[in-house]
């Protein structure tokens, strides 16, 4: 089963994403901020990260940067999920090393579809 790490400071959003992904057959882990996500990423192997941008302690950009700079970690794809629909946020995400950008609230079918594509699960 593919493992996904959902990173978001808002419990509601975490629950929502987790629910959707679990239902689609993913194993889901969660982290409440970038720092916790980084710790988890270093200790576990994930096939995908679904990451919020605006978070306390360590925001989404910084998390991805640190993830990408960690040579020992398998560089699984990162989907950024944020309320900002502006191009600027997307570009910043890609500069940090994210692979995709979805705007909140994410449609369940979109999240499922792209999670499957990014983890290589048949559509």
């Amino acid at each position: 089963m593919k493992r996904v790490l959902v990173v978001d400071d808002a419990p509601t959003v975490r629950m929502y994403h987790k629910k959707i992904l679990k239902d689609a057959g993913f194993e889901v882990d969660e982290a409440v901020n970038g720092l916790e996500a980084l710790e988890k990423a270093l200790m576990n192997e994930y096939n995908l990260y679904v990451v919020d941008i605006n978070m306390p302690k360590l925001d989404g950009y910084s998390f991805v940067k640190r993830l990408r700079a960690s040579a020992e970690v398998k560089q699984a794809p990162v989907i950024m999920v944020s309320t900002e629909a502006e191009e600027k946020d997307k570009e910043l995400s890609y500069e940090a090393g994210a692979n995709f950008y979805l705007v909140k609230p994410v449609k369940p079918e979109d999240l499922i579809k792209y999670a499957k594509i990014f983890t290589g699960v048949g559509l």
Binding site: R68, S70, A71, V73, Q75, P77, G97, N99
Partner: peptide, 10 residues
Amino acid sequence: EGILKSVFLS
């Protein structure tokens, strides 16, 4: 390197 790897993997 990390980014390239992630793109490849994607």
